[in-house]
């Protein structure tokens, strides 16, 4: 993997670690951005890891763009050799697939979709070779996912499926983005799943909705009292399909402060994962379900 460096105007350096998405590219981006943070370079104001790239914002009145570029390339050389091991957490996210709210929304934007005669999840199931939607949901919720980027809008996680490439789900984005997406929609675009943290525009296919808030500027939700954004890059997620009744109960529990996401601390090794994907995932899920 040879990284490509480019200036984004006079205040950003954009680094594409790889054109393709892969866990290797994500880990490299994460380890370089961690090293840049540790280096505490004067003039650097924002450090943004993304799926297979990252971006540094800086003040060119404090550090010359060329000097920062040189410094970043030097950091890349050392960070590249860091062991790809991550101390992180695995979180269970309940999902009410094929819910009425995303369904109502997708029906309003059919003319912007590849297949106006099916729903988003029916279309995704079909083009990925699943016999029916239930099989598709089983695949989507069967393996864990990596939060490989947080962004687009406040606190929105992009999630990357932790399976080998032939098994990865791929779905194109809408032909033209929608102007509306319900809050907490579980979406899909390219090889990424996402959760829309707020209501708004969006181009990802809509599969369902989670009752679990992931962004709370008022910081009233029990588990968001310390910080308003729930996710950070490197989190691991397991989707859990739920029914309408379970959804309603979870919404009520959030309201009364009784909802706590199920989560456990775990250590993830990229090398171990590559050696035995299903075995590593099984261990992660075991850790999650261990009471």
């Amino acid at each position: 993997m040879t990284s490509r460096y480019s200036f984004g105007g006079d205040e950003h350096i954009f680094v594409e670690v790889s054109e393709d998405m892969s866990l290797e590219a994500f880990f490299k981006s994460l380890s370089i951005t961690n090293a840049v943070r540790d280096a505490a370079i004067k003039g650097v104001t924002e450090i943004c890891p993304a799926n297979a790239s990252f971006q540094i914002k800086f003040d060119p009145d404090i550090i010359h763009p060329d000097d920062l570029m040189t410094e970043l390339k030097r950091i890349e050389e050392t960070a590249e050799h860091a062991a790809a091991v991550l101390e992180t957490r695995i979180i269970e996210i309940p999902v009410y697939y094929q819910d009425p709210w995303t369904n109502e929304t997708l029906m309003r934007f059919r003319e912007r979709h590849q297949d106006p005669n099916s729903t988003d999840i029916e279309y995704a199931a079909e083009i990925n070779g699943f016999a029916n939607v239930d099989e598709f949901i089983a695949a989507h919720s069967g393996s864990p996912w990596f939060v490989s980027m947080v962004g687009f809008v406040a606190g929105l996680p992009f999630l990357y499926q932790m399976v080998d490439r032939p098994r990865q789900i791929q779905v194109p984005k809408y032909l033209r983005p929608r102007t509306d997406t319900p809050k907490l929609t579980v979406g899909y675009g390219g090889c990424f799943s996402c959760i829309y943290s707020v209501r708004g525009a969006g181009g990802y296919q809509m599969f369902g909705i989670t009752p679990m808030p992931i962004y709370d500027p008022e910081q009233e939700v029990t588990y968001l009292k310390d910080f308003m954004v729930f996710f950070k890059p490197g989190d691991i997620v397991k989707w859990k399909p739920i029914t309408r009744e379970e959804y309603d109960q979870a919404v009520a529990d959030v309201e009364t402060g009784r909802f706590m996401p199920r989560m456990k601390e775990v250590v993830f090794s990229l090398e171990e994962f590559n050696r035995d994907i299903d075995g590593t995932n099984a261990k992660l899920l075991e850790a999650l379900n261990d009471r």
Binding site: E19, D20, M21, S53, F54, G151, R165, Q170, G190
Partner: peptide, 15 residues
């Protein structure tokens, strides 16, 4: 590229 999407204007989601 894998993960980007099929439109020529698509990239693997970045910052």
């Amino acid at each position: 590229p894998f993960g980007a999407g099929s439109d020529p204007s698509n990239i693997t989601d970045a910052c």
